[in-house]
Nucleic acid binder design. Sequence first.
DNA 1: GTCATATTGACAGTGTGCTGCTAATAGGGC
DNA 2: GCCCTATTAGCAGCACACTGTCAATATGAC
Lengths: 171, 171
Amino acid sequence: MSSKPDLAINDVISAAYRLHAEIVGAGDAVAGQFGLSAARWQVLGTIARGGAASVPDLARVIGNARQSVQRLVSEMLDEGLLITIENPRHRRSRLVEMSARGRQSYEAVMTSWAPHAASLGKKLPLATSRALARDLIVLARAFREIADQSGRAAEPSDGPSSSSPQVKHEP
Amino acid sequence: MSSKPDLAINDVISAAYRLHAEIVGAGDAVAGQFGLSAARWQVLGTIARGGAASVPDLARVIGNARQSVQRLVSEMLDEGLLITIENPRHRRSRLVEMSARGRQSYEAVMTSWAPHAASLGKKLPLATSRALARDLIVLARAFREIADQSGRAAEPSDGPSSSSPQVKHEP
DNA sequence: GTCATATTGACAGTGTGCTGCTAATAGGGC
DNA sequence: GCCCTATTAGCAGCACACTGTCAATATGAC
């Protein structure tokens, strides 16, 4: 039983790479019809589910580095997909909200996405989806442990740190 | 009808994003100790398993665009991790092989990786790994169908052949 | 109130992957 | 031998996400 588990892990890694690529590809294809990308769709979706939020908040929910999201948001502000509003809790860190155009684009994408989501739901039994999501999270944690053990100096001064900014798409 | 399956799909997508990020993070952490990155480790591993191969062959096996792999290979050639050898079947398309230094780095990474792989194997029962890999592939195919249905031109003149990501960013 | 610490905005740089294009080569049909 | 198509190398440009850094602002301990 020495090498078999290793090979199985290899297959899982390979499959995870593929799946990620296909998800992004599908996201870009669907959102691209309306001038968005998968990443921008994700930003709009996070705001749609959780309401106006600061850039660092968005980054924490999405699970990316603050700077990555900030760049996306800056471009989307320039392009009129987003607007900022006053943040009562922080003078400098304004809240990001969808503009009318942003909301319009987002709703168009979601309308186009709906039948695909339904199709996916049919292909994957609910129990399987749940088990899958759970297993993927367990695996992700295991890989994070590996990263932490292997030459990750200390905590990065910025960004999502090891106590995991648990991503939870709002119910 | 319920919106539950949609949410479950959302969770799976979110988990897949997370897993991919952690896999790359762990790969970079492990390979980084020896001056490699996850992507370069993958190139070396593909050569280690399949022998010398042309850049397009590597791209097909890895599942990325030819140009992505070509740039990685070009840089790795410059850095002395790879060498090229004559291709008896194609005058221009030389085969890529590991240099002595590349092989040394690769083996160092694999040695460092082994205990982590064993640990992952213990955490994940073999049957679970297999089922997981299978489910991920099924899901990846489903997402590919979505991308194919949503605004896609026919076959691109270039790119990974049989089962690969195509189409991003439509202007 | 004052100060140390954490958070945030902003900018620069890097790595990976994608698309699009042109020119050179291989291979098969005639 | 000659042409047509597919494959290939090589280059340029874009999207996305990462790290690093600095100054400005909040926050909490005292």
